[in-house]
Write a protein that binds this DNA or RNA. Sequence first.
RNA 1: GCCCAGGUAGUGUAGGGGCCUAUCAUGUCGGCCUGUCACGCCGACGACUCGGAUUCGAAUUCCGACCUGGGCGCCA
Length: 429
Amino acid sequence: MALPISSVTPETEYAEIHGWVHEIRDLGGLSFFLIRDRTGIIQVTIVKKKAPEAVVEAAKAVSRESVVRVAGTVKGIEKAPGGRELVPDTFEIIALAAVPLPLDVSEKVPAELDTRLDGRYLDARRPRVTAVFQVRSCVLGVIHELLYAEGFINIQTPKVVAAATEGGTELFPIAYFEKEAFLNQSPQLYKQMMMAAGFEKVFEIGPIFRAEEHNTTRHLNEATSVDVEVSFADHHDVMDLLERIVVDVYRGVAETCPYPLEQLGIDLQVPGAPFPRLPYAEAIDIASSRIEEDLAYGDDMGTAAERALGEEMGEHYFITDWPTEIKPYYAMPYEDEPGICKAFDLMHPRMELSSGAQRVHDHDLLVSRIESKGLSAESFEFYLEPFRYGMPPHAGWGMGAERLVMTMLGLPNIREAVLFPRDRHRLTP
RNA sequence: GCCCAGGUAGUGUAGGGGCCUAUCAUGUCGGCCUGUCACGCCGACGACUCGGAUUCGAAUUCCGACCUGGGCGCCA
């Protein structure tokens, strides 16, 4: 029975391991093989005069990144990595790797992101890349756990839809038998419909698709959205929830991912809640005093403004009370001040992570909001009908999972947080 | 969509009219090496994205195509 490499300690007497040949150092009569699995690396030491002939032969034939099965005696030796090494009586090549490799897994020579993504299966063998996806898995696990613990229902909504959610963004058209259809940009309308169904608390973690031809380090054409909707809740209630999730995610990763964090060289600091809730008007004042370009009330936050605010705030924060004009039709305007609405963005100092709002739950108000955005209410009929038969007040948000992972780990490019990113130019692998 | 910068061995790079039979590292192959841990030493192998133009001469300049990275807008 093979052991995970990290579980082999100086006290282990005998071990069998499966792994990939990370590095080979042949000193002549003595050779060292570093064998790697997803949990760690162990040194296998072969003394040619003492080792079985079959071991020596296999060791001579093996190439870097081949899959091997090695079994033998474990010796506690201080000068070996991890304080132990394996002296094999069996060294079996399970799958010989061809040469040369498309990229250097041991990271002696860097590879560009494009090269790495082309050979993602190899790139992901690199401990620092594996680590990112172990953390990502943990992040999504923590979110699931927290939401289940708070009584949320995990839903799945269609990704093939007939119309845009909110207009504005470009959609990917697809052929759906004799009809035109699109890949969904957001589960927004569906999760709201489940409020009319009385589900009260729902969440969905799934893909969203945007056909924008953006070319940045923080946009993807296929992203993972963490979406939440809660009945009988206002925007502050769901900001509280979002805050709990972010803090819990950081804490969960810090507690359960020590090896990945070590690989990434990150000393993860759990952010302190509550996060400041900065009204849009104040945010504009702060940003405009710190940047060159003109920024007026009613403008969207540009990248420079976001960056300036991020420097000022230094931590996660919310921007609240946005002008109704620049938020989607489903954001609830304040009753006493309809020029601003109960929408919010959750910001990391580097970028926006999430946006949400208390939603409009009154049918007639929603129709007038849709029309004031220049959209046609008829095309939203499937969405509007539930609002006529008992729609509770509700609020929710959507958060980019990749952005959460990216900002937490300080990744330079959002593509680092996706196994097989889809961007303007990349459709394979 | 707009703007900028690039494409040189498997990988990452140097070189910006003749000094290029193209640098260095890593890798691969062969040889030596019993404690390496970026092992070391000797030798070899391997590349100028494509098409056109300018020129006596182009990896280098110009035009076009293709591909890539980044900034902005917009957003998660």
